[in-house]
Nucleic acid binder design. Structure first.
Lengths: 212, 212, 212, 212
DNA sequence: CATGAATGAGGATTCATTCAT
DNA sequence: TATGAATGAATCCTCATTCAT
């Protein structure tokens, strides 16, 4: 009645965001299981049935959280690591965006991530996100390789990328637990580990297990 | 008549191991929360009260699992990576032992590890183990550094070590999820990432963030 | 259609009273330990979770019963024994109110009282109530004393009051166990014991242990 | 073999006493329900099956405790209050013996008594003991009455006796809770309350409720 | 739209009690 | 005799989820 627009459903969208905010807070504070729908509803300043009406079951709610936070993070990274940049530049910017994001959403995203790993229902959701990251990183490595006229089997690349992503996640955990730590600095450290190691690989230097 | 009775009235030590075996299985199958003491007892072929009598509360039981598996793993690694070996040799053997262990205890240790990360009560226990690993790895790096006449701030070393451990854990997760994968091969890959990257660092090569 | 539905969706205050009623019944029937929350809920015609939601833990529930019944009783006594009356009149009216209350709430209050004495968690709660009663009685005695120009050490008075209260409690137990007995009559008997004995004391008559 | 006596069963009797000692300790420390057979066995320095073999079920064990302590107390009182003494002397000696017993067995008997009141299975046992006491006290009163050429209905006497016993029990509870208090002194106080009140009654002095 | 009222279902934990050695 | 091993049976309590207003 107040505006001519036919949409009067915006409030709903707003409410949903509030709920997700609350859910993220509570899930991160308590962990998935220890979090109760009661607490989430209360933290959102709304009654429980509303939460169910809007976001569905506890599991669905958690997935929604995962989704929103994951998407935000991926977008932050994607926006920073534009494909037209050189590989090292992309990696660096990507890492900086990643750790920046984690630093800014410490108790939120980092703990959500930590939660999702343990609970089977969300393994898939998380694996998908991680796979996207791995793919991106592998792509960077491949790009750099080709630029130097080299080539490495896809599987090989993927495993390396997987390791790099894993290292980053661990440092992110560490960062999330150390409020005084500087995200940018953490990114630099990770870049050192990643790029120097990967760089060697790209150059064909490999370490060989000693013949026993 | 003497050996006919199938499985009854075993000595405590034996039953405790059976229970721990069952607990590891069930925790890894279901996750910490979804696992019920009923199922664990049943899987161990014993009644619930015995579990409580011998291993205590669900939380204590989980800690006991963590402990046993963690100790086994640390011993496997320690036995392989003798301190008198040169640093790269130590690292390599340690990694091989680590991935070998994970490969052999796939559904056990790897998933336990995965569980322990998520649940606050066990964060401490796990952090301790991880810290020991990080310390060992940092020690290797430091050793190698000094052998080359170089030196790096302890904190710096630790962060690198942390990243390497994190990468290894990620690959271990991956290994645990891919029954067909070869532990040794995974170890080799990790060694490549670790040693080449770390090697560069040790030699004073560092990557610098571009001045923006 | 409007008044047809038998018993559903009542306001909280009502349900709480129903639950307390049921709890008093069951606790008195079975004793604190033997009473199960299941039985209480069933007797209240409601599901267990509601009991927990409204009145909390079994212990808290019992305390709530204690509280309600205790308050009711104290009010009954206080209303009857107005402070401006002469001491013997007050004592008499107080006793009459007390035994009247017990007679009317036989299976309720009397047995609750009986329960609370045995269980350590409630000792405090009960001691407080009893202390209030003792204080009131001691006050009556003191008042009467002063009216006659006499004085007795506070401790001494308190012990006498304690004994009188104890005697009343015992008779109350007896009354609770004898449905055919008349509360008023019991009160008269108690008054006889109390007032005559106390009266003597107040007059300075004391009994002395024989020198051995 | 060592002594000629055919009885080699004495050890059993000794063991039973040890167990009862332990049981009394534990029951009084924890209360009937909170006491566990495990703790009792441990406190007795013996294995659980032994306790069952000797003293039977937990309930039976408690009854046995009740019995032993009750008997001891009644004997102490009976021994002190010889029937040939004058009534006041008997009452005084009986009270002194009673409070003396409670003072000496504070945590034992007093708490047992406290326990037995609450639990239905033992109500009977306790009622019997109390009835004996009441009977004895009523007998004293009756005796004194007749000595003065008076007579009172049995019921009436009983109620007065009941009140006196109740008052004594309350003071005993109080005594059990105040380790520094002197049993003899407590007995004197009780005697004052009892004898003066009863004395009046015996003399035909009665208090009458005001005609309303 | 919004909520207080209500519950089914399930999980941890404890104990008295009894075999089998 | 004496005991370590073992369990059936309860009981408390919590939570996700849904009506009825």
């Amino acid at each position: 009645m107040s505006s001519g627009s036919t949409f009067k459903r915006l409030p709903r969208a707003v409410r949903e965001q509030q709920m997700l905010d609350a859910a993220v807070r509570v899930f991160s504070r308590r962990g998935y299981h220890a979090a109760s729908m009661d607490e989430i509803a209360e933290d959102a300043g709304i009654s429980k049935p509303m939460v169910y009406a809007y976001l569905g079951t506890k599991e669905e709610l958690f997935v929604a959280c995962l989704h929103r936070e994951g998407t935000r993070m991926m977008q932050a990274i994607a926006a920073a690591a534009a494909p037209e940049l050189p590989a090292d530049e992309r990696l660096w910017r990507g890492l900086r965006a990643f750790f920046g994001f984690v630093g800014a959403h410490r108790d939120g995203w980092a703990v959500l991530y930590r939660q999702a790993r343990g609970e089977q229902p969300f393994a898939g959701e998380l694996a998908t996100m991680r796979a996207r990251l791995v793919e991106v990183v592998a792509g960077m490595l491949d790009h750099a390789l080709r630029a130097e006229g080299r080539e490495v089997a896809g599987t090989e690349l993927e495993v390396v990328a997987y390791a790099l992503v894993g290292a980053s996640e661990s440092l992110a955990d560490w960062l999330a637990d150390h409020p005084e730590a500087d995200p940018e600095r953490t990114a630099t450290r990770m870049m050192n580990v990643a790029w120097l190691g990967a760089g060697q690989l790209l150059r064909g230097v490999t370490w060989q297990p000693p013949q026993r």
